[in-house]
Amino acid sequence: MDTAIKICDLTKIYRKRHLGRLYTNLGVRNLSIEVYKGEVFGLLGLNGSGKTTTIKLILGLLFPTEGSIYIFDKLMPDKKIMNNIGYFPEIPYFQRFLTGEEILRFYSKLSCIREDIQQRINETVKIVNLKQDINKKVSEFSKGMLQRLGIAQSLLHNPDILVFDEPVSGLDPLGILEMRNLILLLRSKGKTIFFSSHVISEVEKVCDRVGILHKGELIKIISQNDWKQKSLEQIFIDSIKN
């Protein structure tokens, strides 16, 4: 199988100096993961286990202390490759003075979309079901609407890889269902999805494979067949306790 994301021996140690003393904090240690093209890979872990650190390292928002990341065999950070990645942060923050449409137009232009920008905005707005509210200012958006806008901006440039950080965090049951359907829709279109979560029930429903992260270390990678025999929740708890 072709590899979309390859993480090799990745270590991130946060260093902070205060009054001449150096304080260190482990982000992730010796992380090695391969995510195949077209699969949904979930990173499961408790709060503070290193999920967001891993995602930020993939996106070049953090720099690794050791190790490397390859996306489509290109060593990251690579500006051209970034055009093929869509990122949805845990809590999407936008410029509050702009309208939803202005935000999408701004990101479209930054992503150098070559096709008709308005058409692309209309398509993504339709996918996330935000057509009615797209001309409102972001300051008037509810949390659910912000989530939708966050997803829309990640899909605008039609990337092959989608990196979602806690996509179902804080969503109501309907929102969770819509997010699940969206992930499945994107998978059916051949997109590679890498997402982090601590909601085991959701990970179980949409992922092809799952990596369990604990205290910055990858302790297990399991596939769908594994959690058909034993619940993912049980595997997760057993892995962490051991």
């Binding site: 996106l59 070049g60 928002l61 500006k79 051209k80 970034m82 055009n83 990645i85 990122y87 942060p89 999407p92 923050y93 936008f94 410029q95 990101y107 930054l110 992503s111 150098c112 901006q153």
Partner: peptide, 9 residues
């Protein structure tokens, strides 16, 4: 807000 800008090309 800088995150969504810097993850662009």
């Amino acid at each position: 807000t800088i995150y969504l800008i810097l993850v662009r090309p």
